[in-house]
Write a protein that binds this DNA or RNA. Structure first.
Length: 618
DNA sequence: CTGAAGGCTAC
DNA sequence: TCTCGTAGCCTTCAG
């Protein structure tokens, strides 16, 4: 649905959807008493509802003002048990209800209108009053609609969103809702969600859909997989509720490696993932192309950290983490772009080696070095100019001709060719899918005319940090915020591993104690004379500890389940060796600074990066 | 000064 | 199956 509030007359006239609705309702004197808006009962549905309301407010204001626009609500959840069915129109109401019953129900989510069967739909229409919610108008609502839908009001929308309270939802129980409540309690949830999905987290630089893809790839490990298949897997593993096509392009985007896309693609592009000829729009369909994790990805997102991340839960299933904690701020490596509501974001790309050096500087308490924008494989120049980076292509005179063999960052070969044709130039082309070369015949070098400059502003670097949107003025501010989070996460990792080692050492100590005790002929005889029911107190008596602190067989299983062949000298030696190894490991780690743990990871990553060819060769 | 376009996850 | 329309924000650039 077009937002008609600020759209050009031309765009409105061309828009078939608006044209049809206006025609159906009958311009001037509407020929229907009411308009009912029946949308999917989800955030995107609320957005569409808002856009239609917005259009009615412009073209049929009397319908809006006479409260003749209504919502047709449908259940979002049905809980059933035998013949009993409870329908819920909002999720909070469903949760409240679950607390009032201890019986188990079969629960079904109605993700779109299409989930409803024909007979369910008929049922809604035969009980219209249960599903009709008139939207009531008052004079101040005009300002609300303008706040929500006028292009120039992004700053008002920022303020509006900042006041969103947790747990907000639109209550239908009064039988009608005011337009202002619709905006403040329903549309706002879409807008908030729009930001959540469009603007990345500062720590891992990922949007939720990208994080779901990465999580699924970590989970799968192994071989290449068809992109279309991977997206099915992502849907299953992370309960991704949106369209497949959207997820396909997210995956393709994460694997693209042409100049001006990712500096470090997290996924490997096997097949045609798009080129700089068309800025990636030339990617093949998801069913023809394959991908897998790139080797470098686990250097940046170490597997040992997986266990200590905080994970999201949906429908009782553990899904992807709230955010990853990579060892470098990946948002600076690959940059990001996104548009939400009230907010958008743009972070340029930087050199991972410079990022690593700056993190090492922080670890050594040295001063940070300013970072220039950096694009892997780019042959032009990049220069900082106040709050922006200027990127320039390459142009030079060769005899009577002008040769262009690099375009500025973000300009694509095919587009530039069109521009040269528009100028009426005679030229020959010598590109590959990774390099650019135009040769313009009988020309004088004219820098301005060839438009080989783009500028990338750094005034809109917005990222989520600790559940709030935050504006960053410099990549160094991002590095600094990141540093504190990652440092305390190394402490968390250290504590976690020490804790695990302690458990393993305790187990080996007790195993060893038990074996040494049993190797004595009399002790073994005494043990064999016991009844099963006496074993646990006997074990405690000879100083063997329970592993889970309880006096159950489970707590002592680690000795009770020892097979007889463990009572041999070589097996006992094995336990001693293991104990020694684990104890050494513990000693080493306990004496290590967390800063050194981080340094080691950074050096490993740096070594791996230096092994790769930096000048764009696959 | 205004309007259009590009980028990206969603419909 | 593929193409094309829409939102949303910010910046740049053309007219």
């Amino acid at each position: 649905m077009l937002n008609v509030r600020d759209a050009s007359i031309d765009q409105i006239e061309k828009n078939q959807e608006v044209a049809n609705v206006r025609k159906i309702l009958g311009e001037g004197t509407p020929r229907y008493g009411r308009v009912l808006l029946m949308c999917d009962q989800d955030h995107d549905g609320s957005h569409i509802k808002g856009l239609v309301l917005n259009m009615l407010d412009i073209y049929f204001p009397e319908m809006v003002r006479q409260n003749r626009v209504e919502m047709f609500i449908t259940p979002i959840i049905k809980a059933s048990r035998n013949k009993q069915v409870f329908s819920f129109f909002t999720i909070p109401e469903y949760y409240a209800w679950t607390k009032t019953t201890d019986q188990t129900f079969h629960v079904k989510y109605y993700k779109g209108l299409g989930t409803n069967t024909a007979s369910e739909a008929k049922d809604y229409f035969t009980q219209l009053d249960k599903h009709r919610i008139p939207m009531t108008w008052k004079p101040t609502d005009t300002a609300m609609l303008e706040m929500a839908f006028r292009k120039k009001n992004a700053d008002l929308r920022k303020q509006w969103l900042s006041k969103l309270q947790q747990g907000t939802y639109l209550d239908f129980s009064q039988g009608s809702v005011s337009i202002s409540d619709f905006i403040d309690r329903e549309l706002i949830l879409f807008s908030h969600h729009d930001n959540l999905r469009s603007i990345p987290n500062m720590i891992d630089g990922l949007k939720p859909s990208q994080r779901k893809v990465l999580y699924s790839c970590f989970k799968r490990k192994s071989e290449e997989i068809k992109v279309a298949q991977l997206s099915g897997y992502v849907g299953e593993m992370t309960s991704y509720h949106h369209g497949e096509a959207s997820l396909h392009s997210t995956i393709v985007n994460m694997a693209q490696d042409f100049v001006g896309s990712n500096n470090i693609p997290l996924l490997y592009p096997s097949g045609q993932f798009g080129t700089r000829l068309q800025g990636g729009k030339d990617a093949a369909s998801a069913r023809y192309i394959f991908t897998r994790l790139n080797t470098i990805t686990r250097f940046i997102f170490p597997e040992v950290d997986d266990e200590i991340l905080e994970y999201n839960v949906e429908e009782n299933q553990q899904i992807e983490p709230k955010h990853y904690v990579p060892i470098i701020p990946t948002v600076l490596v690959n940059g990001c772009e996104g548009m939400g509501t009230g907010w958008s974001t743009l972070v340029p790309t930087f050199d991972p080696l410079e990022i690593i050096d700056n993190l090492l500087a922080l670890l050594d308490k040295r001063k940070l070095k300013e970072m220039n924008m950096w694009v892997r494989g780019f042959h032009g120049t990049i220069e900082k100019d106040g709050t922006k980076f200027i990127t320039r292509g390459n142009i030079r005179q060769v005899g009577k001709n002008v040769v262009i063999d690099e375009l500025p960052v973000g300009k694509w070969t095919d587009d530039y060719k069109e521009y040269l044709q528009l100028l009426g130039k005679k030229f020959t082309e010598h590109h590959t899918d990774t390099s650019v070369k135009f040769e313009i015949k009988n020309e004088e070098l004219d820098w301005k005319m060839y438009k080989l400059e783009t500028s990338i502003s750094t005034t809109n670097m917005i990222l989520f940090h600790e559940n709030e949107l935050k504006r960053y003025d410099s990549p160094l501010d991002i590095i600094t915020d990141f540093y504190h989070v990652r440092l305390s996460f190394y402490q968390k990792r250290k504590d976690h591993i020490l804790n695990q080692l302690q458990g393993e050492i305790k187990l080996l100590t007790n195993k060893n104690k038990f074996l040494e005790y049993m190797i004595n002929k009399d002790n073994l005889k005494e043990f064999a004379s016991k009844k099963r029911s006496e074993l646990i107190s006997y074990l405690k008596q000879i100083g063997i500890e329970s592993m889970d602190g309880t006096d159950t067989e489970k707590g002592f299983a680690y000795v009770l389940n020892l097979a007889i062949w463990n009572l041999t000298s070589d097996q006992m030696e094995k336990v001693r060796v293991q104990w020694k190894e684990k104890s050494n490991e513990y000693e080493q780690l306990v004496n290590k600074q967390v800063t050194d743990l981080w340094r080691e990871d950074l050096i490993k990553l740096k070594t791996h990066l230096l092994k790769l060819d930096r000048a764009y060769v696959q």
